[in-house]
């Protein structure tokens, strides 16, 4: 990096074994303060495992991880106070309202919050009294994002936040993520969608079979590939099918 940036997450030689299987194989990378960092890779590449170890939800086999200067080995609780976590498909008490769930999380984080204000960050203020189970998939993900903001974290981890959402809901969630990022929060995100990575991430790491096989800005990664003489088989048209879909059905987010 040309510019001097502050490292907020540093992962050094991280390794995770499940019996004989090595899920994460001695990876090292850094995340800078205030960026959106993407972790890409096919299913089973070790993205979620890596993320969950950083989030203190899983024990590592070896390696060293520092988060905002704190070591995951002995400062777990303080780390939990400084990060926000969205799990892949996390549930909540289904028959509680969003306000009641926010009550729960404000207790779990020991913080006082303005519930309406925090719901407005993800445009859910109209759904405050709705039960979680009555929300559509997109709204559930938005609420899940909302719970990561309760403790005003410095870093937010999002594990495949847009999987299963329609194009409108995905775009809506991107806008919310950019919004969170614009307030100075560092965002670490995993995804299968390259358009999402290209759209959101300032830097990304590509994982496969437990190893990081590339790490750079999206632009640089593309340029590097082109420099090897790579060409797409088919000439790219000025629009793709998603553009057609959005043009036909509108960019407007729909609740249901």
């Amino acid at each position: 990096m040309q510019k001097e940036k502050k490292v907020i997450i540093s992962v050094n030689n991280l390794m995770k074994n499940y019996g004989d299987f090595t899920a994460v194989n001695k990876i090292s990378f850094e995340v800078y303060e205030g960026e959106i960092f993407g972790l890409l890779g096919p299913n089973g590449a070790g993205k979620t495992t890596t993320l969950e170890i950083i989030e203190t939800l899983r024990e590592k086999t070896s390696g060293e991880i520092l988060i905002d200067g704190l070591n995951v080995d002995h400062d777990q609780n303080e780390i939990k106070n400084r990060i926000g976590v969205q799990l892949q498909a996390a549930g909540y008490y289904p028959n509680l309202s969003l306000l009641e769930l926010l009550d729960l999380f404000s207790g779990l984080y020991n913080v006082e919050i303005d519930k309406q204000q925090i719901l407005s960050l993800v445009s859910l203020q109209d759904k405050a009294k709705s039960k979680y189970k009555s929300l559509s998939g997109g709204l559930k993900q938005r609420f899940s994002l909302c719970t990561t903001l309760i403790n005003k974290p410095k870093i937010v981890f999002l594990d495949e936040p847009t999987t299963g959402l329609d194009p409108q809901a995905r775009r809506n969630l991107w806008a919310l993520i950019r919004n969170i990022h614009s307030n100075g929060t560092t965002v670490v995100i995993t995804t299968h969608y390259m358009d999402e990575a290209e759209e959101l991430c300032e830097r990304l790491a590509v994982m496969d079979a437990g190893k990081i096989i590339a790490i750079n800005t999206p632009d640089q990664l593309i340029d590097d590939l082109v420099a090897t003489g790579f060409e797409r088989k088919k000439e790219v048209k000025k629009a793709n099918l998603e553009d057609v879909f959005l043009n036909l059905t509108g960019k407007e987010w729909r609740d249901e």
Partner: peptide, 17 residues
């Protein structure tokens, strides 16, 4: 069973409790 399978417990673990 439900708290575990719907990852509610896991989400709790991500908080300092």
């Amino acid at each position: 069973y439900n708290l575990r399978s719907t990852l509610v417990l896991k989400r709790f673990f991500a908080t300092p409790i």
